[in-house]
Design a protein around this nucleic acid. Structure first.
Length: 149
DNA sequence: GCCAACGTTGGC
DNA sequence: GCCAACGTTGGC
């Protein structure tokens, strides 16, 4: 079973929001590499919920994919900040997945800690200059991160 | 708020 | 197809 990591700005959507709601839609991804990873996700896959662009960037919890990729409705919605004029109902290039809450860490694992963990040196998240917002996590990396809690 | 690094756009 | 200019990401 594959593992993933997905970034979100907690001001927009945080692990607390997901905990409160129980489930949600992961949408608004507008990068092809990230989108392609989303299309590989299967129901039941787990992912680390990463908080970016905030006071304490880091992994804040765990979620699970509850519906595999489908056309992202925000691309077609003129009222959405993620609206894309080029997208059409029958030609929507962007994908969303549905997610459900699994766990919120008592203490988020800060990016600085993750960078110091040798087992994570291949993870795109900690590589210099990487801005990828959706990425695969290997079984070993997944276990290494869990062990850091 | 700054700015380095990146991805995308569009003229040529 | 090249590449400069631009807009975005995201840590600090």
């Amino acid at each position: 079973m594959p593992y993933w990591l997905m970034k979100s700005e907690p001001d927009e959507f945080s692990i607390r929001d997901l905990k409160k709601m129980g489930h949600g839609r992961w949408d608004g991804v507008r990068n092809y590499q990230a989108r392609n990873f989303m299309r590989q996700m299967q129901e039941g896959d787990q992912f680390f919920f990463y908080h970016s662009s905030c006071a304490e960037p880091g992994i804040a919890g765990i979620g699970r994919i509850s519906r595999s990729a489908y056309p992202d409705p925000t691309a077609l919605d003129p009222a959405s900040p993620y609206h894309e004029a080029k997208a059409r109902d029958d030609a929507n290039p962007w994908s969303a997945v549905d997610v459900e809450f699994v766990d919120a860490f008592a203490t988020p694992l800060k990016l600085a800690l993750l960078k110091n963990e040798p087992a994570l040196h291949e993870l795109a998240l900690v590589k210099k200059g990487s801005r990828l917002s959706v990425m695969p996590v290997s079984e070993d990396e997944w276990q290494a991160i869990l062990a850091m809690r």
